[in-house]
């Protein structure tokens, strides 16, 4: 589909960006953030000992 209409062209790229963000970018970022958070907590546990060291 070689659309020559610049209107059509920019509409297409808008939908494409939207899909990329929803399907790939944000899900991947979410997993990275959650994973990174888990990783940081794990590293803190290595330094300060396993959770529950209140006694």
């Amino acid at each position: 589909m070689e659309s020559t209409n610049p209107q059509e062209q920019s509409k297409r790229s808008e939908w494409l960006s939207f899909l990329i963000i929803c399907v790939f970018l944000f899900p991947i970022l979410s997993v990275v953030f959650v994973g990174g958070y888990g990783f940081i907590v794990w590293m803190l546990q290595l330094i300060y000992g396993p959770p529950g060291h209140s006694i």
Partner: peptide, 9 residues
């Protein structure tokens, strides 16, 4: 939190 940390571990 501890569960996610364990998963990373």
């Amino acid at each position: 939190t501890d569960k996610i940390a364990r998963k990373m571990q």
